[in-house]
Computed example of a mutant assay.
Amino acid sequence: MATLHRRLILTGAIGLAAAAASAQPAARFPERPVRMVVPFAPGGSTDIFARLVAAKMSEDLGQQIVVDNKPGAGGNIGAEAVARSAPDGYTLLVGTPGPLTISPNLMKSMPYDPARDLVGVGQIVNVQSVLVVNPATGIASVHELIDRARAQPGKLSYASPGLGSSPNLAMELFAAQAGIRIESIQYKSDSQALTDVMSGQVPIMIANIAGVLPHIRSGKLRALAVAGPRRSALLPDVPTVSEAGLAGYAVTGWAGLLAPAGTPSPVIEQLNRALNKALATPDVVAKIEQQSAEPAPVSPKAFDAFMADERARWAEVIKRTGISVE
């Protein structure tokens, strides 16, 4: 009987010890600097957004967040590096539509699967684009552009910074929804495409508002419509494409923060809180708005759902147009 009593006491002690251990808080995160990979060269808008939030998040988390630029292959090199990293919260990705929602549908094979290998921490920004034409075209509205394209099928062309780029697919979606055919002229960069539209070599393009706003204000370009779901505060008198006659059309650029799949949920939630706190800081908001963007704080779950919807939408556009990249 005494032996049984001792066993019961020992079992109870072990149980209490286990319960106490499980009640102990997990190891503090972060305990060392965090690496934030930007899959593009320094100085671009994605790099600017990353450095803005990294600085504020560092203050909140008590550890430095180091921005690491790993450009190449349209953002896929940096994205793959993060996808293959340890899922511990110490390696993060600032991702954009290209490597996360377009490339998986565009390329026949990829060394990583964004939907499987990465998980959302939160969205950083939405970036507005605008449909512009060279004023010499005489086209003054979305209706006039569609009418011209229908009257002269295949005669109009648009400039874009590469096959499968966001502007390329945004214009292809526009043409598909309008039931028109516009020839795609590919360039190696936004700046080259813009130069030829301004010179009249190519009449049309969709571009980031920040890159074309000075030329709209100077009269060298004419803004027909904002591509996103809402008007831009920078172009308040310019309607959205949907308002201008192509109901339901909406394309918005964006950037978000991601981690390797398998990263513990408490770590994801902590990073999300720090990110959203940074996005609510007045000086960060002001600097984001200077880039023709707007803060877009959301939960990790909402960001994952948003990316899934984006992948499905671009898959349909790519399938319809037959675009592919080896």
Results as ranks from 00 to 15, higher is better:
residue 5 H to P: 00
residue 14 I to E: 04
residue 14 I to N: 06
residue 21 A to Q: 00
residue 24 Q to S: 13
residue 27 A to I: 12
residue 31 E to D: 15
residue 42 P to M: 01
residue 43 G to D: 00
residue 46 T to H: 09
residue 47 D to G: 01
residue 49 F to W: 13
residue 49 F to Y: 14
residue 60 D to H: 13
residue 66 V to W: 01
residue 68 D to T: 09
residue 73 A to V: 06
residue 77 I to A: 12
residue 89 G to W: 11
residue 92 L to P: 11
residue 98 G to V: 06
residue 107 M to G: 00
residue 107 M to D: 02
residue 107 M to I: 01
residue 110 M to Q: 11
residue 112 Y to A: 06
residue 112 Y to V: 05
residue 113 D to T: 10
residue 113 D to N: 14
residue 116 R to F: 08
residue 130 V to C: 09
residue 132 V to L: 03
residue 136 A to I: 01
residue 136 A to L: 08
residue 136 A to Y: 00
residue 145 L to F: 06
residue 148 R to W: 12
residue 151 A to I: 02
residue 153 P to H: 09
residue 155 K to H: 12
residue 182 I to L: 10
residue 184 S to N: 11
residue 192 Q to M: 13
residue 193 A to T: 04
residue 194 L to D: 09
residue 199 S to M: 05
residue 201 Q to D: 04
residue 209 I to Q: 06
residue 211 G to N: 12
residue 213 L to K: 07
residue 215 H to P: 00
residue 218 S to W: 03
residue 220 K to E: 11
residue 221 L to V: 05
residue 227 A to M: 13
residue 227 A to H: 08
residue 233 A to F: 01
residue 233 A to Y: 00
residue 240 T to P: 01
residue 242 S to C: 00
residue 243 E to L: 00
residue 245 G to F: 01
residue 254 W to Q: 12
residue 257 L to I: 07
residue 277 K to H: 11
residue 284 V to C: 04
residue 284 V to T: 11
residue 286 A to D: 11
residue 286 A to V: 01
residue 290 Q to S: 10
residue 293 A to Q: 06
residue 300 P to Q: 11
residue 304 D to F: 05
residue 306 F to H: 11
residue 306 F to W: 10
residue 306 F to D: 12
residue 308 A to C: 01
residue 310 E to K: 14
residue 311 R to P: 02
residue 313 R to C: 00
residue 320 R to D: 08
residue 320 R to H: 09
residue 324 S to A: 14
